[in-house]
Design a protein around this nucleic acid. Sequence first.
DNA 1: GCTGAAACTGAATAGTT
DNA 2: AACTATTCAGTTTCAGC
Lengths: 160, 160
Amino acid sequence: MPPSALDRTDRRILDTLQRDGRLPMTELAQQVGLSTSPVTERVRRLEREGVITGYHARIDPAKLGRPLLVFVELTLSSKSGELFEKLRNELMHEPRVLECHLVSGRFDYLIKMRLSAMSEYRELLAQLLQKIPVPAQSNSYVVMEEIKEGLTLPVDARAT
Amino acid sequence: MPPSALDRTDRRILDTLQRDGRLPMTELAQQVGLSTSPVTERVRRLEREGVITGYHARIDPAKLGRPLLVFVELTLSSKSGELFEKLRNELMHEPRVLECHLVSGRFDYLIKMRLSAMSEYRELLAQLLQKIPVPAQSNSYVVMEEIKEGLTLPVDARAT
DNA sequence: GCTGAAACTGAATAGTT
DNA sequence: AACTATTCAGTTTCAGC
């Protein structure tokens, strides 16, 4: 799982698979200009080394009954390690929380949730806060328009 | 592309493909308890109807040289439609901006960026702001710890 | 480390219940 | 709407360069 720096071919593979995760190895091979064997081997290596962490179908949230996207900024009044641990665990296991980050700055957690309606937002926030024994302050932002959302990283396919 | 409500089998398919987007149709079929033909047909239908919007390999940002995750809250001093349009376009085409949302509340845009270093953050923010002709206020939050990040939605596989 | 071919496994099509 | 059988495409493995 160590280094083995990414060369130009690796980068082209990553760039392509980011866009189409189901592309057959034969077609991927054509795109990067090699035959299938070395390309397959490279993909397996990138998986092994943890560069590629998975393949996922993406689903339209609205079509699954979750049209509401809300960001919550959360600040805890006490910052004991144990408390953070407890809340982290709660957030990790709540599937409606898509993202959660510990941030520096004015607040502690930045949380992103996908919900069916505002009523669900109230329920979920109450549920999360009631699990922690100290007061917390939260600011919420409802998304009016999703301009862009993705995990696709820029891959500059320059030489090794 | 219209409704055709998702039944229990559709939901199990979506749930499975969200977790493993490269799963062969034969194995997907086993998991949902059908033979491959109807499962393949259902997947094609879900793609056609826009429920499944794509398949993507996920890549470790740090391994691609982008260890820094920053959220930026942006407020424009003037809110003309034309100005929003211009900035939206800029953000849409900047690959280091992974997410961008128009939010209600104290600020206008919530932006998520993946960067190589703080120097790149300064450059990018300056670049974005200089493209718009009015003053803007921004607050930035550097992520100290990524607790959770994904696009995986909860799929309750209850009956039709 | 890549190519190319042979053997195998999965996907697609069409016909059946 | 789903199953089965056939055909075809993609994957895997390996000999040779």
